[in-house]
Design a binder for these strands. Structure first.
Length: 173
DNA sequence: GTAATGATAGCCT
DNA sequence: GGCTATCATTACT
């Protein structure tokens, strides 16, 4: 009986902060500043760091984020691309028809499909090794290899250089 | 270039 | 309640 473990190395992210309009939490900002509880989908972004925030985008794709700020302050990091490391055969089964291994998780929607990340993980901790978790990198990435640039696919708060990726990595478009 | 597909927000009555 | 625009994308022509 083979392991069902899948491991992928994150190679592209985007940061979102609750006080800028591209962030889902922005619609709750005024409420929270008045001392009211956040509500709706993005209330989770005001929760404690280390939780998963998974939401449906364009009615088609689940997108995977990590809540990053202390409770009461909204912020998250969108995980946009990852490089398959092990359990690749499982990812292939979840991404039928994809030949190139580097294309299995080379986008935020592709990544959630390849790793079977769906709404069941919304609000769950990523800090305990159960079903879905974040692990420290085996090899530390030198800051010089991390390229910062403008976020993609958004219409508000453009220009902030809050997209981060490994320079020239094949999983990054 | 563009269809697919559904949740959400903001507006209206 | 309803209506409409928008949307952190992908795969296909």
């Amino acid at each position: 009986m083979g392991s069902r473990l899948m491991v992928a190395r994150i190679v592209e992210t985007e940061a979102y902060r609750g006080d800028e309009p591209a962030c889902h939490a922005f619609v709750n900002l005024a409420r929270v500043q008045r001392g009211l509880a956040p509500r709706g989908r993005s209330a989770l972004l005001f929760d404690e760091p280390g939780l998963a925030y998974v939401y449906l985008n364009y009615g088609v794709h689940w997108l995977f984020n990590v809540v990053t700020e202390r409770a009461g302050v909204a912020g998250a990091v969108l995980v946009r691309a990852a490089e398959p490391q092990s359990g690749v055969e499982h990812m292939r089964r979840l991404r039928p028809g994809i030949e190139d291994e580097q294309d299995l998780a080379s986008g935020p929607g592709k990544l959630t499909r390849a790793l079977d990340i769906g709404p069941r993980f919304n609000g769950r901790s990523l800090c305990v090794a159960r079903e879905l978790w974040l692990a420290a990198p085996q090899v530390r990435v030198p800051p010089r290899q991390i390229e910062a640039g403008p976020r993609v696919g958004i219409s508000k708060a453009q220009g902030l250089p809050w997209r981060f990726c490994l320079r020239g990595h094949p999983c990054v478009s």
